[in-house]
Design a binder for these strands. Structure first.
Lengths: 181, 181
DNA sequence: CTTGTCATGTAAGAGGTTACATGATTCG
DNA sequence: CGAATCATGTAACCTCTTACATGACAAG
């Protein structure tokens, strides 16, 4: 469960409740999970049982109690071991590429409409990222950490930007009448 | 099950056995599934039961029989409906970015080693893609289809290339002594 | 004489998602 | 008056992976 490491990472920043993590993860696309309760609450229970985090219940007036989790030394060790472990390759899962791979039976107009819809979708995503960039707050404990978070965010933005450039180029080429069908 | 559409796509090209599809999918990274038996054989049984493909058993001497599947009109319709359906956004799942996000506790040397390993991994992947590019054979039924497959392949290669450029830049910046830790 | 290929399939389980359930409070 | 937020958790289900099982033949 890779999400456990992501959660340990957050808790290495500062204590969080399950609800906090759920919100952060579901709004992030670096932390690509849907942010569903099942995974997060189960992970926290598991981390607690294995003494990688401690649990603190905060009773609140007129609001449900919060369970706030704090990382332990053991948790920090697990995280560090993972940080030093062999990096995984990125997974580029792009169902649209598969759609295109079999799209030759479509007419010129249908193909252009399909590419146009994709272009629009990517464009919306890019604009949303640019707006949210300010709202995103990263742990800024050292200049290096701030730098890393900025670069990671840039990496994701660039991925969408390249996708947008790509689809515009393909669309243009297909409209240049070289391909009759 | 998106893999069903991928399979229907292949069968819209020409008939295949489950074993054929398994090999193609497990060697491809556009078709990003692992290519395990379970999914592919189950999908084919399902497609057969819903009359989207027909099954033909070819008995062979000294070899196990092959079940070769051919797409039906109904299958072609399902595929066409999917081709015209709303494109999904790509999913960039990059566990290494998550690793980096929490990597600030690492020393300068450990960080550089981590980035170096990632750089190496991506580089290997890129080289492998360039070698396999010739081996890859696409359906070349029309010039447009050939063009699309070439561009799709380029899209994937470019993703790795950008990742490589990115990691080299980050690594360089972190070694420029601006960040002491 | 073990490993790999051909070719089918099943079993077990991890990983992940949507939806439901509770119950008080606040916002439009 | 309905919806959203806070906050926890469970149920049901889909997706996907690894590993196992068969059995003949070929190659190192």
């Amino acid at each position: 469960m890779d999400i456990q490491y992501a959660i340990l990472g957050f808790l290495s920043w500062r204590p969080f409740s399950g609800y906090d993590l759920k919100k952060i993860i579901s709004e992030s696309d670096l932390f690509y999970w849907s942010g569903n309760n099942n995974q997060i609450y189960k992970s926290l229970i598991d981390l607690h049982q294995t003494n990688q985090v401690t649990q603190q219940i905060l009773y609140q007036e007129n609001l449900p109690s919060r369970k706030v989790y704090t990382i332990t030394e053991k948790g920090i060790h697990t995280l560090r071991a993972w940080l030093l472990s062999h990096p995984e390759l990125p997974e580029f899962r792009n169902n649209f590429m598969i759609q295109l791979a079999w799209a030759d039976p479509l007419s010129k107009e249908e193909m252009d409409a399909l590419l146009g819809t994709y272009e629009e979708e990517i464009d919306v995503q890019l604009r949303m990222r640019l707006v949210q960039a300010q709202a995103q707050r990263a742990p800024q404990r050292t200049p290096r950490e701030s730098y890393l978070w900025a670069r990671i965010s840039e990496n994701m933005t660039a991925s969408y930007q390249h996708e947008l450039d790509w689809v515009r180029e393909v669309r243009k080429a297909l409209n240049e009448e070289k391909f009759m069908s």
